[in-house]
Design a protein around this nucleic acid. Sequence first.
DNA 1: TTGCTCCTCACGTCACGTGAGGTGGC
DNA 2: TTGCTCCTCACGTCACGTGAGGTGGC
Lengths: 253, 253
Amino acid sequence: MAQTWKVGAVADSSGVTVRTLHHWDEIGLLKPSRRGLNGHREYTEADLGRLYVVIVLREFGLPLDSIGACLAGGLEPKRVLTDQLCQVEAAYAAIGRLRDRLVKVVAAAGEERALSEPAELLQLMREARPSADAVLEAYLDDNQRAELASGAAAVGPALPYLLEIEWPQLYRQADDLRRKGASPSDERVQRIVGRMDELSTLVGGNRPDGGGEVRAAWRENPAAMSGETEETASPWRELADYVESARALHRAP
Amino acid sequence: MAQTWKVGAVADSSGVTVRTLHHWDEIGLLKPSRRGLNGHREYTEADLGRLYVVIVLREFGLPLDSIGACLAGGLEPKRVLTDQLCQVEAAYAAIGRLRDRLVKVVAAAGEERALSEPAELLQLMREARPSADAVLEAYLDDNQRAELASGAAAVGPALPYLLEIEWPQLYRQADDLRRKGASPSDERVQRIVGRMDELSTLVGGNRPDGGGEVRAAWRENPAAMSGETEETASPWRELADYVESARALHRAP
DNA sequence: TTGCTCCTCACGTCACGTGAGGTGGC
DNA sequence: TTGCTCCTCACGTCACGTGAGGTGGC
């Protein structure tokens, strides 16, 4: 009879927990070749060989079912690792952007601010976030700026919401339709453009060409105005032209 | 009666899903101020203001309960964001190391190798991983190297396991005890050192000072031999001295 | 007899996705 | 009557952690 090891010994020598070995047994990833009469798991040397591969592949961040498929020959390890690399690259970039933004907020928060008030918090966010109204401020007059800062404009407490949540969302929806090949005259596109004009008017007031500021700000600084934190969006110019042509149709039907 | 919005409208304008709004309602993060007679959720403008904050904080990667605590005043946003930054930095570094290792494997795999055999896969892993036996090879003679490569040495298929899984684990355990202040003469430490000698002998054979290669390799290149992918381990020299002194006690009791 | 290890359920985690089955307003 | 939106369960996800309750060998 060749030597075997029980869970505790295997766990001790490998560094994985007993529970983990139980789990890998349950899902069929690593079943001990034998069971004792008492039901105890008995790992053979071949099992340890397999355990080695599982642990090594897990260190590359592969999901357990991929590891199982590799071991069963159902998946090519090279492809799996290549795919994994792609995902890791993407995650790495994403978390890097997140870190950059966090650095900005924390730095801004260091400047003697109390941050006790939620209003302070919001102000802070605006500085660190690819922020619509931060960019927009340059296009507003003093009154408008005051309204924006206090968050107590006629539009009410939802003004930041309208500018930083709904506004980017409208552009995302428009971009979605554009990618799907919808014409600028498509009624869904028209509804979006209509809503954009409503929001522009709410911010810009009733002056002639009210709301021109918002659109101008967007054309000049689309990335920030869109609230995008990823570079996944399509070329801005294209989207801007698309929306503009839809707007033309909307104004002069 | 001030205006209200139903879930669908809120979802559309914000970009979060209806299910997400349901969930945030369930856990009390964002409860609509009212319900219609039919039970329909009715979000007020104030609710949208709160929704805005939730979304912005979520973009910083904060867990929902932290967001709730911030909004309730139970947590200082500044601290929460600072903590979050620390975690994100750590995750960023960790995923960067993972990426580097993946780049190495994938690059090595690109060199015309089939990777159809599991043995090939293992060989590959050894190249990309901070690997015990890769470093060790420099210290082995041709016979030993051949045994290691074939994985069919006297120790059997578990040789890679012993060298790359159990061996580093022994050092981790020793380091653990050292940090806890255990004396080198502590019986737990002595057991570990005894096992280290066993493994050394298995690899080095019965020659005088058999197994000296493994220990030598470890002293020269502790990071790789330990299998550590993080820099969290304590200064190697200290650990090496600790283990050496335990070994002295073990040999000459 | 006391420890120690082993076993099998089975719930909890985190933030929702995804149907299932049914109701109300145009 | 047909769509559309709304509702409330309730299971699934991913890889285990963490008891709960009980058994077998030294």
